[in-house]
Each structure stands twice: as structure tokens, then as C-alpha cells.
Amino acid sequence: MAHASTIKNFKNTPKPDRTVQFRIKRCDGPGQPSRYESFNVPIESGSNVISCLQYIAANPITVTGQKTTPVVWDAGCLEEICGACTMVINGKVRQSCSCLIDEYAPHEGDVITLEPMSKFPVVRDLWVDRQRLFESLEKVSAWVPIDGSYDLGPGPQETPQQSEMRYTLSTCMSCGCCLEACPQYQKEDDASSWDTSFIGAAPLSQARLFNEHGTGRQLKGARLDALMGPGGINDCGNAQNCVKVCPKEIPLTESIAAVGRAVTIHSFTRFFTGK
């Protein structure tokens, strides 16, 4: 009775002991041309993209028998909580650690294409430089301005609903999926454009997170000011891809609307009070 939903993730029963081909977009460094290399990887039960990349690192030989260098990629926890191993798999952005081969390539000879995220400069192969994402957290003052780290008693009390709401927003691991999938967020190689090019969903949502905290809202005005200019909240095109690709299912579109409301009120307040 329960069997129907036993292996619900897989449309097809994966074939054991099969070989899957990885087609990987490679690039030796910034400014270097890109190329695709393909590798055959024997699949064991429970394989994910990371374990396959580890196999390729130990056996860097392409399908044509060409000896090549191990593929470079970024990874950390492998539990989908650090956000490091984000890449574009079969055209769509996601974490590679939680990408199971049994799901993506259940048949002998299936091909999985790995590409670096396209919205960030490539460092090498699948590793991209997401520094811009972290700098945008600076732009929105994504912190609670406490006096210091010395013991001054507890923080502001809050209801379980407030706490749960902030928790949900606070699970953002800065992976960049929402930025990669956003048609309004563009790759900017030149750091001087970062400030005026659309900031994307993740930092907008972080601004909301800290505006919701009792002490954090002291910087609300500064955050909203930063988000009212070019590259801020107004550059959102409401395609709403962000919320669909977010691995943590953060309600990013709600955050965007909430920041929209905040800047609306902020601008009227400023207009009529001069503050």
C-alpha cells in the first residue's frame, strides 16, 4: 500500500552499475576561452554530483581518452547548508551536493551538463567569484548594530511568530541561486558597476530580515536609502524566478514586496517630514 510512494523522487528506477557522462564547461581562468570536456563516471548507489567530481579529480581522463587536469569546483559542507557548491546543472542553477545522479541520470549513458554560474566571473572551471554577493550585504548593512560583544543582558524579546519569520529569512546561505535565475540580475565583471546594477533578491530579503529585528531596525533608514537608488528594489522585474529556485524556500518575493512597502512609506515620510 505504501509502496507507491516509496521512491517518490525518481520517475524511473535507476539502473545499477551504469556509466553516466558528465559534460563539463571548463575555463582555465579569467579571460581564458571556455571549452567542454566530457567524462565517463561509473555510478554507485547514492552518487551525487560531488562524488562524481571527486571521481573525475582522481581519474582526469576524458571520454576520448585524453589526459586532462582535475576539474576545479567550489564545495564545503555537502549538506546543502553552506551554499558553496552552487552551479548550473543541465541548464538550471542548484547545489551540486544535493543533486543525486539516480534522479538526474537513471539510464546508462545519460549525460549531465555542469556549467559555472553565469552571473558571476569564473575563477576556474566551475568555481565562480561571488564576492559581489557578500559586498551587497555590506550595502544593505546586513547586521544588528549592537554596542559591542560585552555582556549587557539579553536582546529584545519577540513573539514566536516574529522569531520564526526571521528564522526563515535567516536561513539564506548566500548561494546565489536567486541571482543566477533572475533575468534582471546581470553579470558585472567590473566591481565599480556593482553598486548600480540590480542587487537581486537575497540582499533585499536580508534587508527585510534586519529591519524586522528590534535593534536591527535602527539602521532601517540607511538600508532603505541604499535600496532606493539605482540597482535597488525598483530594478526588480517581478519575474519571481528567485523564489522558485531558492533551495531554502525563502519567501523572497514577499521580502521584495515588504521592502517595496517600506520604501514607499519611507519616501512619503521623507517627502513630508524632510527627514
Partner: peptide, 15 residues
Amino acid sequence: IDLLDRMGVPFNRTA
């Protein structure tokens, strides 16, 4: 714990 609370860690809350 108090310091983390002040920093904004969303600790689970009672009613």
C-alpha cells in the same frame, strides 16, 4: 546566549 540574542540570532521562542 545573551550576546547571541542581542546579535539577532532567531532563537526559538516560547508563546
